[in-house]
């Protein structure tokens, strides 16, 4: 176990959702008030049909979308009014959202650079993450020169390099072919075993949910059907 694993394991915290609701236009509630507690270090899969509010829920936890009501806590900290970078969580987007003009190294290092981390430390951290994800030989490439699975791993690297206690995945495997999907699933399970971050993973694929989850949260029209 290396330093990054340890740091993440220590930062892993429970996620408490207390009457969290969301409405984009003020009239229709995409998410009606919702309560849930995701335990520290667990791998929770959020399962639900397309359009049921999974991405919305994830983005409220991660920060880019604000809650319309209710509170979100990481451990004992209320985070719903904090900027994403202050929450200590990271997110992998469905289409990866890598910066197309930056090298793999710069993609992974960007958040550290923004945070003002000195260069030598940054290089060390990025290289450790790259080794862990098998990206070490690809650090100089641009995202356009990578395969789907490699891009996926860069997106994961970008998320874990900040050592987040909470790791969010929004349908990260839906763009991959069946074989690669299977392989990435194994890799993600392995990664979770190793780093132990509180992980929330969104999917609409039941098999994926079964193979990965410690617990499954079934969402339908913004309501929890089963947890």
């Amino acid at each position: 176990m290396n330093a990054i694993d340890t740091a993440i394991r220590e930062a892993a915290s429970a996620i408490m959702l207390d009457k969290v609701s969301k409405s984009y236009d003020g009239t229709t509630e995409v998410i009606p008030p919702l309560d849930a507690e995701l335990r520290a270090g667990e791998f929770t899969v959020v399962l639900g049909p397309s359009g049921c509010g999974k991405s919305t829920l994830m983005q409220m936890i991660a920060g880019p979308e604000r809650v319309s009501g209710g509170t979100i806590s990481f451990g004992t900290r209320q985070v719903q009014d904090l900027e994403p970078k202050q929450r200590g969580c990271a997110m992998v987007f469905q289409n990866y959202a890598l910066y197309p003009h930056m090298s793999v190294f710069d993609n992974i290092a960007y958040s550290l650079k923004v945070a003002g981390m000195p260069k030598p430390e940054r290089v060390e951290r990025v290289e450790a993450v790259a080794k862990m994800l098998g990206l070490f030989d690809l650090l100089a490439r641009k995202p356009g020169q990578l395969s789907g699975g490699q891009r996926q791993r860069v997106a994961i690297g970008r998320a874990i390099v900040r050592e987040p206690g909470v790791l969010l995945f929004d349908e990260p495997l839906s763009n991959l072919d069946a074989q690669l999907r299977h392989d990435m699933r194994m890799e993600l399970a392995e990664l979770h075993r190793r780093i132990g971050a509180t992980t929330v993973f969104v999917t609409h694929d039941r098999v994926e949910a079964m193979t990965l989850a410690d617990r499954i949260l079934i969402l339908n029209k913004g309501r929890i059907e089963q947890f």
Binding site: Q59, G63, P64, P84, K85, F93, A97, Y99, Y110, V114
Partner: peptide, 18 residues
């Protein structure tokens, strides 16, 4: 431009100027 690019940058801590 993909909307998620903006969100990813915010997750990485970049403000409007950065």
């Amino acid at each position: 431009l993909p909307r998620d690019l903006v969100k990813a940058a915010r997750m990485d801590g970049a403000g409007p100027i950065r």
